[in-house]
Structure formats: C-alpha cells, structure tokens
Design a protein around this nucleic acid. Structure first.
Lengths: 208, 208, 208, 208
DNA sequence: TATGAATGAGCCTTCATTCAT
DNA sequence: CATGAATGAAGGCTCATTCAT
C-alpha cells in the first residue's frame, strides 16, 4: 500500500510498519499546527529526529502522507462504526452510541481531523482522493440510515432530515477545533449533548 | 490600509476601490476551490484577466489578500450584528435574528468562509492576525451574550452553555460546506432550524 | 510547441523565439561538454547570463531542452535533405550531395550532434522520443534509398548494402567528435572522402 | 587497484575477483541501457540480486565502476593488439587482422563500448581518466602505424591519411550501436567489409 | 559478507515579487 | 495602469554512500 519498499522479513516489517505509523502520526500533528503546505518535509523530519531523506523510506511523497493521515482517520472509524451498526438496537440508541464513538474518535484524532478539514479542497478533487471521499460518504450514509427512521417517527428537533444530518456533522467535526483533553466535558458528554440537541429532547422533564 | 498607493482623486479612488474589491472577491473564490497555498498569483490573475504583475496594483502581497478576504467577511458581519444587538428585543428573538443574519452572511460569502476555515492555522498565529482573531472573538461574545440568559432561563436544549455555543458555531460554519444557492432550504430556514435545535423547542406542539 | 506560454503579440513573440533559440543552442554547447546529466540548470543559466528560474520562461523542463536540441538538429537537416532529393539527379550525385549536406550540418551542429549521440539511451526509449526516433529513421531511409540502386549497380565498395549504410553512418556521425572548424579539411572534402570510400573508387585511375 | 579490501587468501581472493568482475559486467549492461547517470546504485544492485550496500564490497564508488568498465574494455584489447603487432606480417594483413580483432572485441563488449562512448565527456576531462585516455590513444596509434605505410603506398581509398583513420574509428565504434549477435554478418565479415572500404579495393578484381 | 536503514548534499522546479517598457 | 520578463529563495525529492546489525 505504501509506495516505498516494505521489508519482507516479518521482524523488519513490523518495525517498518510501526515507524511508518509514527511518521504519519507526527505529520498529522505538525500539519494540524502549521498547515500542510506551510510545513516543510525538513521540519517534519526534524520533529521525528530524522533527516529529511529518511521520511522517504516510509512514505512515497508528501501528498501520500496526507493520504495516509486520512486513512488513519477514516479506517478505524468506519471499522468501529460497522461493528456497532451490526449489533441489534433501536435507532435512537444506536445513533447515540455512534455519535459517542465518533466524538471519541474525533477527540482522539484531533490532529488528523484538523488536517482533514483544512485540506478539504484537495480531497474534493482528483481521482486520487476518490477512496477517501467514499469513506466519508459511507460514514455519512450510516448516520443518514439512523436519522431517517427517527425523522419518520417525529423524534428530531428539526423538520428537515437533511438539515439534521448537516447540523450533526457540523457540530461533531467542529469539536476538533475547541476540544481540549482535560476540559470540563468528556467526549461522551459532548456526544450526548449533541444528540440531545438533535432530539430536541432534554427539556422535556423540565416542563412540569 | 492597502499597502499599495491608493489614488487621491475621488473619481479614480472609487474605481480603484471597486477593482480592489473585485480582486479580493475573485481571490476568495479561487482560494476556496484550489486552496490558498496551492493557488498561484498567476492563476489568480488569470481568473480576473490580469497579468501577474497587475494584482500588485491593488494588493501588497498574497498574504494581505488573505487579510482582506477576512476583512470582507468579518467587517460587514460585525457591523450588521452590532446594529441588530442595538435594537431592543428579547434574547431569544435576538438570537434567532442574529443566527439568521449570520447564516445569510455565510451563504453569501461561502468562499470567504471556506478560506477563513481552511487557513485557520495561519490566522491563529502571529501578531498580524490579531485583529482578525479579535473580530471572530467579538462575534462569539455576542452569541455568548445572548445564550447566557437563555441558558439561565433553562431554555437551551443542552445542559452546558459553552457546548451550546460550540455546537452553534459548528453548525453555522459548516453550512458553507454544503449550502447551495438554489437548494431546498433558504438561509433563513436553515438558521431557524439551527435555532430550533438549540432551543430543543419545535416539538412544543407535541406537548399536549 | 514549447511548454511555456509564448507571447501573442508579434513583437514579443519574435524576441521570445529568438531567445528560446539561444537558450537551446547554449544548452547544446554546455551539454556537449559537461554531459546532460552532469550539467546543472544553474550552470546552464549562468552561461546565458540568466538566473536559474529564467530558463523556465523558455523551456518547460530540462528534458524538453534535450528534445528541442534534437529538433534543432534534425529539423533543418531533414528539410534540406528533402529539398535535395526532390531535385532530379543521378543517385551517385545525389548521395554525394546528401553526404556533403550532412557533414556540413554535423560540423555546424557539433554540439547538438554530440548531445544526440551521448543521450542515445534516453532517446531510444519512451513514447516521448518517438518523434525524434522517427526523424532519424527517416533520414536513414533517405540514405538507404540512394544506396540501394548504387548497390544494385555494383558501385559500392562492400558486398553488403546494409553494411555500407552502417559504415557511412558511423563515419559521418563520428565526425562531430574530431572535426575542428579551422582544420585541414573542409566539411565538403571530408564528405567527399567518405563517399569515395563508400564507392571504393578513387584508386581507379591508379590502375594503369 | 580496487578501493575496497581485497581478500589475501588466494581462495577468497579468487571468488572476490570473480564477483567483482560480474559486478562490473552487470554495470556495463545496465549503464548501456539506462545511462550511467540515470542508473541508480540500487537498480544496479537489484540487477545482480544484491542490496545497495553490497556493491561497495567490490567497488569503491560509482565512478570507479565506470573506470573498471573502461579497463575491462581497453585492457584485453590492447593486450591482444600488442601480441598481434608483435608478429611479423605485411601492414595490410596486419591491419585486416587488427580490425577483425577490434570488431570482435567491440561486438563482444557492446555494453562496455556503448558506455565508453556515452561517457566520452567524462573521460575526456580530469586527471583521473588520463590512463583511460592514454589507452585509447595508444590503440589509435597502433592503427595509425599500420595506415601510414599503406597510405604511402597509395593503397588507401582516400587521399587523406588522417581522414582514413577517423573514418575507420567511426565505422568500428559505431558497430556497437547496431550489431546484433545473431545477425546476418559475423564480426569478421563486418571487419573485412570495413577494411575493404578503406582500401577502396574489392571491386578491383571485378574490373577485368 | 550482506542487508537495509539512514544521511545529507544537491538538483530541478516553482512562485511571489519586482521592474523596465 | 498593465504587461511580461526576470529574479532568487526555497522546497520536494533523489541518491551515492555509510554503518550497525
């Protein structure tokens, strides 16, 4: 999958994979702060204690680095989401669970997420990014699939189904921009807050 | 304010301002699609039927162009928001009005907005961008000022006041990424949807 | 034809073409001496009193420079050869005329020729160089077309027709490597010498 | 002579020499096809089933590899030529024999020859290559020594002695570029063809 | 011996910016 | 005002070479 030659012997390959992973992770961090284009391969390399050329043992190009960051972000998210949806449960419970999962993922991959958002214009164009775009699409469809029945049941806080989805996407994605690890709210609380908003719910008990 | 020599005679100055405005607007469009760093001054110039050098009659540097885009975005928004807040009205009505104003502004300045978001990492750092950062802060404080009493009155759909603000920011800002001019929903409808979500309200009729 | 934007206004275009021509010619000279790969664009630029970047106004890439050198070499040669062959004349006279033309061209374009030969391995491979290869082929076919009847008439100094062609090619092409402008022999004399060898002729008068 | 540590024990040394020879030979092949500069040590190593580092057990540097290729080419040629010239024989017979020897050598070392020609610009400059240049010079002088008396005797097909030498060099060297092992003509036949051309001869017997 | 990771110098190329016309 | 040529500073990437294992 990588454009560079991956060792064959299991011992070496393992080490190689571990390091590649570290390179990508470091890249996510630096790109998130300095911006993809404004980050030099030299800077990036320095941040991993590697000479500039060393990066290219693990990554074929700067652009591929971006690709790998997206993969590290979307791969596990989709995987975990699929597992979750495979379980039998009510749509509202599943949506809540999925949003929790998602917010947790976003907060754990803040850097990846920020890069993903900032480089939107790159990802939206060109055949090379089709896979990434499809991954995102797939995730949105999972959300849609859960929102639809809830909408049909009149459980949503807005009349328009699609607006609900867009709002949810906006809220959760934006989380990467303000969430701080040791903040007042845990990822789960944040997620629940979003879902509550979507359901227009929590005030119900307040009424009487 | 511009780094280039602005004509003194009113007739010329007017024309100059008009053209500068067009340049900035064009830049917003191209930057939104290709990305700031990935857009060449040449490309930008070509899109306005100008040679590369021509840009520099109206703009001092590429970076200043980014600054002007932010100004074109935040200036009028803050201005209109201030006017609105100066009127006497209930917080909930004002919040709804402000969100409408805001969503309208975002949809009318989609390109500006997208650039603003993508270049977050630039704007977040450096003295040069302090003014821009403050503008954004100021706007958020307006929202906060309206949300606080609503929260105190138990009118919000979430327990945490700041989460409400963050959610609102996420929803509205994200709008720039999916809104299409001739879509099903008008900016006002979208704005109302967001506010409804925030209030956890619209299901009110469900009550009895 | 060039990969760079050529001016539209005739005045400028003329200057542009003249300079591009000069760039290519300079490149031929430097490449011939230092070798294509071992020549830096910087060095090349310096030899024309241009900053490194300046080259790229006239040429799209280093590789294209090689292409243009080949064109400058083969284009006029083929053109002049075609004109010559269009005239009515005996094959032996035409061959002699063609070889003269050819040797003159080679000596006038020594640098181009040396580059052409040294970069043989590049030109022999890849779609990009097809046109160049065809040009060379075309010229060889012209020679073949003249040699064939002479061979049939038993006029050649060797039994094998193709060997005659190969020998001729070897002799003439090699000329670029030893010819010096103010040497003992003029290009025409050299050419005649080659043709004499090919005809196995001049000693005829010696016989009696 | 090699810059790398050559084993002392005869058994090992033999194996070492054999392998070094193979490395050089492989290099000749790859360089001939891809070009010296355009061939990576990695590519070269791969073509001998060796990792990049492995090459350096047998060769001190890439440049030395080029030197060794030249040696593998010129060494045996000069040796065999000396032996031949040491025998007593008429100049014309010796020239014919020498050209045969030479053409055979060229066809057997096509790759070496092609590299030698392509890297002309390297070999022509610098103290390091003096020895190689002298080897070539020496060989040319042998040819000259045979051509001179033939010229004096009016046996050549051209008036100019040096032109004859240049033509011969051109023909034979060029052979590497078109000769194919199982072609119509054997190296000896090719050689004889060249000599015939030089003598302007073969048709003589035809006359009567 | 052999391997593959790592280095670091260097090169092609891009591009914001300047300036003579 | 506008143009397009020219500059020159970087930056991504390659690759010969070294070295611990």
């Amino acid at each position: 999958m990588a454009a560079t030659t991956r060792p064959t012997r299991p011992r070496l390959r393992e080490r190689y994979d571990r390091r590649q992973d570290a390179v990508v992770r470091a890249a996510a961090r630096v790109f998130a702060h300095r911006g993809y284009d404004q980050t030099t391969i030299q800077e990036l390399a320095a941040s991993i204690d590697l000479a500039a050329g060393g990066i290219y043992h693990y990554v074929g190009s700067k652009e591929q680095l971006l690709e790998l960051i997206c993969d590290q972000l979307m791969g596990p998210l989709l995987e975990r989401a699929r597992v979750l949806l495979a379980e039998a449960a009510e749509p509202d419970a599943q949506l809540r669970a999925l949003v929790r999962l998602w917010v947790e993922h976003v907060t754990e991959h803040r850097d990846h997420m920020l890069v993903f958002q900032q480089e939107r214009h790159v990802i939206e164009r060109g055949a090379r990014w089709r896979r990434i775009r499809e991954d995102r699409k797939r995730f949105e469809q999972m959300l849609e699939g859960l929102i639809a029945p809830l909408h049909a049941a009149g459980r949503l806080g807005v009349a328009d189904e699609r607006l609900a989805l867009a709002a949810l996407l906006g809220m959760v994605n934006h989380t990467a921009q303000w969430y701080r690890p040791r903040g007042r709210l845990s990822p789960a609380e944040i997620a629940d807050g979003y879902v509550d908003l979507l359901f227009g719910a929590p005030r119900a008990p307040v009424d009487p």
